[in-house]
């Protein structure tokens, strides 16, 4: 086991090269709905139980199924209303289980990125070959069902190995060259994109996918109230918008249709979306669009600045 994964160097928020988003926007804003499939009878993993109760764990399974049966349509209509295209963190087996949802998102030109096969199949304990195979399956599944060359990754249920990011970058290259496998949502160390070291040397970035703004973290782990969640989203935006005067920032809202789309939570979420998109200097984008833009316009300056700051001030 490592003391530090070594994906990035220390890079202070102070005096970084300026990021200028398209049309001079202050904030690049993206919404990442997790569209997930959890198995009722998931196989055992040595490091993590899928469910807290003996089979069948109908409470946890049921509310996640609610997300697909009821919640998806609610959130999608809301994103339509505010002109937001989702960037989907996808349990790729859902392409087989619920193709109706995939079609609805495809029609809207939403982005699909890989969140593994099922959210009940953890990376823990996999051999390198097994993890590579799982990642390859997920990227190929997205291509087969949507025609998209998967650019991003969020490990299933945030379960990682020491190889996850390298494998994703490499499988992306093997399948589609530089068009796939170039950003990760698995790291929470920054409010701006960060160049990531890969063993293959591939140009690769981390795109901020906020754990703090994640509805499941807010509602289930931190147990905040719906209206407080709405306030948190607005406060997060306000500060990033303010700081975006100096250099472009990113705000991400990671969501789950079984959380944010519940009847008692949708209003708070809608108010936040209305507030954010009501500002003029917001670039409403997808994860892939932000990563691509950054790699084209900002990546080299960032790498140079990181190198210059390694010795201190």
């Amino acid at each position: 086991m490592l003391t530090d994964p070594g994906y990035y160097d220390y890079w202070p928020y102070d005096k970084r090269p300026k990021i200028t988003w398209p049309n001079g926007a202050k904030v690049a804003f993206w919404v990442a709905p997790n569209i997930e499939f959890y198995e009722l009878d998931a196989p055992a993993n040595p490091s993590r139980k899928a469910w807290p109760q003996p089979y069948p764990a109908i409470a946890g399974y049921g509310i996640r199924d609610y997300g697909n049966r009821v919640g998806h349509m609610r959130q999608m209509q809301l994103l339509d209303k505010y002109g937001i295209r989702g960037s989907i963190s996808l349990s790729t087996a859902l392409c087989d289980h619920h193709p109706e949802i995939i079609s609805l998102c495809k029609e809207r030109d939403w982005e699909f990125f890989s969140h593994g096969i099922y959210n009940t199949r953890y990376t823990y304990g996999m051999s390198v070959d097994q993890e590579r195979e799982m990642i390859r399956d997920s990227i190929e599944t997205i291509y087969k069902h949507t025609g998209q060359k998967c650019a991003g990754y969020l490990a299933p249920a945030l379960s990682h190995s020491d190889h996850t990011i390298d494998l994703f970058a490499e499988v992306g290259t093997e399948l589609f060259g530089d068009e796939a496998g170039f950003y990760t949502c698995d790291l929470f160390h920054d409010d701006q994109p960060t160049p990531i070291h890969t063993r293959s040397g591939k140009k690769f970035v981390s795109i901020p996918y906020s754990l703090e703004m994640n509805d499941t973290i807010a509602y289930v782990t931190n147990k905040v109230t719906p209206r407080q969640y709405g306030k948190m989203l607005k406060a997060n935006f306000d500060r990033l918008y303010q700081e975006g005067e100096e250099s472009g920032t990113i705000m991400c809202i990671p969501t789950h249709n079984y959380q944010v789309s519940c009847p008692h939570r949708l209003k708070a979420y809608e108010e936040a979306l209305e507030y954010i998109t009501g500002h003029s200097d917001v670039w409403v984008a997808t994860g892939r669009e932000i990563a691509s833009y950054y790699m084209q316009h900002c990546y080299d300056d960032s790498v140079a600045d990181i190198a210059a700051k390694q010795g201190g001030k």
């Binding site: 499939f37 198995e39 009722l40 009878d41 196989p43 993993n45 040595p46 199924d65 697909n68 049966r69 009821v70 998806h72 349509m73 087996a93 087989d96 289980h97 619920h98 193709p99 109706e100 949802i101 096969i117 099922y118 199949r121 304990g125 996999m126 051999s127 070959d129 097994q130 195979e133 799982m134 399956d137």
Partner: peptide, 25 residues
């Protein structure tokens, strides 16, 4: 490594992963 079955998905098919009720939005 995990048992090979961990990367096999016998219920990866249209609808639910069980026969308890039908998939329906």
């Amino acid at each position: 490594s995990l048992d090979d079955s961990y990367l096999q998905y016998p219920k990866r098919q249209y609808g639910m992963d069980h026969d308890l009720y039908d998939w329906s939005m």
